[in-house]
Amino acid sequence: MVDEKKLNEIEIQEYSSLVQRVNPKPQVFKHSVWAFVAGGLICVLGQIINNSLILQGMSNGDASASTAVILIFLAALLTGLGYYDELAKYAGAGTIVPITGFANAIVASALEFKREGYIFGVGARIFAVAGPTLVFGFAVSTLIGLIRVFVAS
């Protein structure tokens, strides 16, 4: 008796190894250089904004928050103009990891569903990517806070 399930598993394994042989590898080195330089430059821009705000007499905390707001604004603008996704094709994580990537994900989701209306199109979809990000950010940080409260008491 031929065990069909087993045969199928062997077929799947054989095929997976064939796919792995044929499948092109991403250009890791080129991608890495792009990500490092692009991400680094976005952070430098942030540092320049931050420094000039401090020189204008802002407190460290306020300057940092204002820097985030300005970067988010710039990313939103570039996304609206249709440039951010073009840049990200090359820069990859260099444009995804910084807060500008977070802003891009929010704006892109909102923009995409404009044609489905301003309430359940834009309003609902704006959180398609930002939602999970914020949920995990809040969940983890709040959990850390709770641990602190209970460890302290």
Binding site: P24, K25, P26, Q27, Y90, T95, A105, S109, V129
Partner: peptide, 17 residues
């Protein structure tokens, strides 16, 4: 693209496959 993958303006790096 918008139904199966990502919003069209979202920055993603396409894989070679």
């Amino acid at each position: 693209e918008r139904q199966f993958r990502f919003p069209t303006e979202q920055g993603v790096q396409p894989s070679p496959s």
